[in-house]
């Protein structure tokens, strides 16, 4: 999709103190990378880790937790999607299927 223009919402944003938002990443078991699972609110990092444990790993889904303040994440902008990701479109030589091998070569 094309990018968003900053859209004013018709929701009142009251100037009050919220616990900041944290993005949660969980390594479900050793050998896998951390994966984004969602977010939660916490007053500090320590609380964010504890809360993440209770909220996102109630069924033994976790071996390790990362918490990152949501406002510390710098994201690529959706309007740069073409710019960033299209150039890889024509570099099919990066993929193994680009290379035809004689049938005799079974595993490579």
């Amino acid at each position: 999709m094309p990018p968003a223009k900053p859209l004013p919402l018709n929701f009142s944003v009251v100037d009050k103190k919220h616990w900041p938002l944290w993005e949660i990443f969980i390594r479900s078991r050793q050998g896998l990378s951390h994966r984004h699972v969602g977010s939660l609110h916490a007053a500090d990092a320590e609380m964010a880790v504890e809360n993440a444990r209770d909220v996102y790993t109630r069924r033994q889904e976790g071996a390790s937790i990362w918490v990152v303040p949501a406002d510390s994440i710098t994201a690529s902008s959706p309007d740069e999607r073409d710019l960033l990701f299209d150039p890889a479109n024509d570099k099919v030589y990066r993929h193994p299927t680009f290379y035809d091998l004689p049938d005799e070569v079974k595993h490579m």
Partner: peptide, 25 residues
Amino acid sequence: QHFDAYVAAEKKIEPKDWMPDAYRK
């Protein structure tokens, strides 16, 4: 139009993508 076609094709909208105000609401 682009949005409607995109959604009709079973593709996902992500948070920072453009979306009609009514969809967001």
